[in-house]
């Protein structure tokens, strides 16, 4: 039982990651691919934050009467990673807008066919 209590968090996170990963590699629509990437990354963020959690701890902001704090390092890493994630998303979506203009579609198999004609 303690085995499950120790790991349930990570197992669900793995499931979430794989759901996102599945959307990325299976979706035909480019916008959905980007949504999948975001879900994949957000789930990895949850894994990191889980690493830093200390049972009975509190947020790592110094306050009177609190002796146990959660680990601030994973928080810093994930702050950075969130920003990196949204930066990638913005460029990806901008590419999609241009692809739509150039090909008239954002479905992967359709513009592959159009390129074959050239």
């Amino acid at each position: 039982m303690s085995f499950i209590v120790d790991y349930y968090n990570y197992w669900i996170v793995v499931f979430l990651m794989m759901a996102g990963f599945y959307i990325v590699i299976s979706a035909n629509n480019l916008v959905k691919k980007v949504v999948g990437l975001n879900i994949f990354q957000t789930s990895v963020f949850i894994m990191y934050i889980s690493i830093g959690k200390v049972s009975g701890g509190s947020a790592p902001i110094l306050a009177d009467g609190i002796t146990s704090y959660s680990n601030p390092l994973p928080h810093v890493l994930i702050l950075t990673a969130i920003v990196v994630g949204v930066a990638t998303t913005a460029v990806g979506l901008a590419l999609i807008v241009r692809i739509k203009r150039a090909y008239g579609t954002v479905e992967e198999n359709e513009f592959k066919d159009k390129d074959a004609l050239i």
Partner: peptide
């Protein structure tokens, strides 16, 4: 996920996730 971050004591991260994500 922002709520999860709050629950796991990562308030700064939750703030950013809510604003950005």
């Amino acid at each position: 996920s922002a709520l999860i971050f709050v629950n796991l004591d990562a308030v700064d991260v939750a703030f950013t996730e809510a604003a950005v994500g």
